[in-house]
Design a protein around this nucleic acid. Structure first.
Lengths: 294, 294
DNA sequence: ATCGAGCTGTAACAGAAGTTACGTATTGAG
DNA sequence: CTCAATACGTAACTTCTGTTACAGCTCGAT
């Protein structure tokens, strides 16, 4: 379906628009269905035929005839269209940005777009984060028996690196998996039950990361996954999944929410390991003067 | 603020919040249902049980058991809750996370601290950013005549790396300055009027970075500085200064606002230079495999 | 006033959906 | 190694849903 021509298909421009467009050709009772539908838009159409009929104060068959007139083959088909439209809309939840986008003129500039998207993305990511998942992740990272290895893709690898830099100070026993296959395989020979992997996999998901996850889990290692809200395929293998939003002011996905999540994890880890981390902190600071920035 | 009494009512705080809250008490297969549900919320829950089961790669009864554990009497009841929530949200387009923030999230803990500090820090950073400074920075980075070199400290170097990865795709002629003194001096021998340096210097400010800035400016090179709100001493030498907030949920400073600023700069740069050339993108992808992550 | 055409609701049907019971596999404890 | 408890899927069942056929009604035209 890649032709931009006008299509008779109902799904072309959205169900709501279709209803308004064809409203003229409808009978009185059918019009009541349309109004009931538009009154509380997708929700009213996601229940049963009988419920919608009652809300519109018509009979069931009238609802069916109405939908048939719109071009739908049946009620399930209509609901499917509604759900698909809903899924589309949910993926870009920032109505403010989209509204500005629709007005034709480009938004006030990148700065305004950032201000509109990034704080919400961070807040949303943290709000949607399952408390249990974070707790589970903290429990794993706090286990000093486990050796932690972090890995990611070209961009997300920086998040892995950032996590490792913090873990080194908080609990030790952490390392960053190199991106070259040679060094990588060398580091993976002795992976086993005592290993915890922090994997970062964002759209477009990388095959090597999935392969890595398979290898690790097959050997009894555990995986904590940082991914976007569409969930990398690694999610199926991971013990803990931490999703982030990726809405961005640019065409590229944003890593700001994901970074916020990493820092939150580190903060929670410090909360749990408290005194231990404090002592290590002092030691690291002493040994760190040749490096510089904390 | 610290009342640990959570209401047992399923519909009290929204279905999504309920799922996240009870995720800990669920069996592995049930957790997969929860993830599938949250991945494309609420659409995935508005189809049939079989469809949701297939999406989660579990059986139908597992879906039912999961919902039963959440306190729902049956699938229809669950869908009704979903639709009611949807109707609620449609009427008040305010962000869903606000409500979840007030009712669902625990009053204490790292997650709550992050939710309280990071979004505001990002918003504040962007709001306090002088539009003129951003414009000036964009003008410099958009100048293809200039060779861009990015450098930073142990942690902030990751931001420099992130900026370079984007610049390579957007405009080319960009490189990351190594952190070892030997390679560093080697890269600096021919610095001159045609050079632009993106320096990242955060508390505690690094002497090497200041020295670098002195060397660069003395040879006629330009400096754009990313720093915290207390301003690195490099600020005196920089042509453009971009300060970020650093409030954090942990004892360490946060780089989330700074990353947001970098992404904003990239977005503005893309606005100015137009869409990224497809050829450059392909070439980058081909060459990326030999790359290591710092 | 009568006829006819189009709406609309009632009732019965077929099918799909949710639900439940049961058996197998898996895990952890003793 | 054995046993028990839990987790999970398969299959049968039952309810409810969407659908269709049919009959009554309204309204305009002749």
């Amino acid at each position: 379906m890649s032709n931009p021509d006008h299509v008779e298909e109902p799904h072309a421009v959205g169900v709501a628009a279709l209803i308004r467009q064809r409203l003229g050709e409808c009978s009185p009772a059918e019009r009541r269905v349309a109004r009931a539908l538009l009154a509380s838009y997708p929700a009213a159409g996601l229940g049963t035929v009988a419920a919608l009929a009652e809300r519109a104060e018509v009979s069931g068959p009238t609802v069916l005839r109405f939908l048939s007139r719109l071009g739908f083959g049946g009620y399930p088909e209509f609901q499917r269209a509604l759900r698909e439209e809903l899924a589309e809309r949910e993926t870009s939840p920032l109505s403010a940005y989209r509204a500005a986008e629709r007005t034709g003129a480009p938004p006030e500039g990148a700065l305004a777009r950032s201000a509109a998207t990034l704080p919400d993305a961070v807040a949303g990511t943290l709000a949607e984060l399952p408390q249990g998942e974070l707790d589970a992740a903290v429990r794993l990272f706090a286990d000093q028996q486990l050796r932690v290895t972090a890995a990611g893709g070209r961009f997300s690898g920086l998040l892995a690196h950032y996590l490792v830099l913090h873990l080194m100070q908080v609990r030790g026993g952490s390392r960053l998996l190199p991106r070259t296959p040679v060094e990588r395989t060398d580091m993976l020979v002795d992976v086993g039950r005592r290993d915890l992997f922090a994997l970062f996999d964002f759209r477009r998901y990388e095959e090597p990361t999935l392969a890595l996850a398979r290898e690790v889990t097959s050997r009894g290692g555990k995986v904590v996954l940082f991914t976007d809200r569409w969930l990398s395929p690694v999610a199926g293998l991971a013990e803990v999944v931490l999703p982030s939003r990726v809405e961005s002011p640019s065409p590229y996905d944003s890593f700001v929410p994901a970074l916020a999540l990493v820092e939150t994890l580190v903060a929670a880890l410090i909360d749990r390991l408290g005194p231990v981390a404090g002592g290590r902190l002092k030691a690291m600071e002493a040994a760190q003067q040749t490096f510089g920035s904390d």
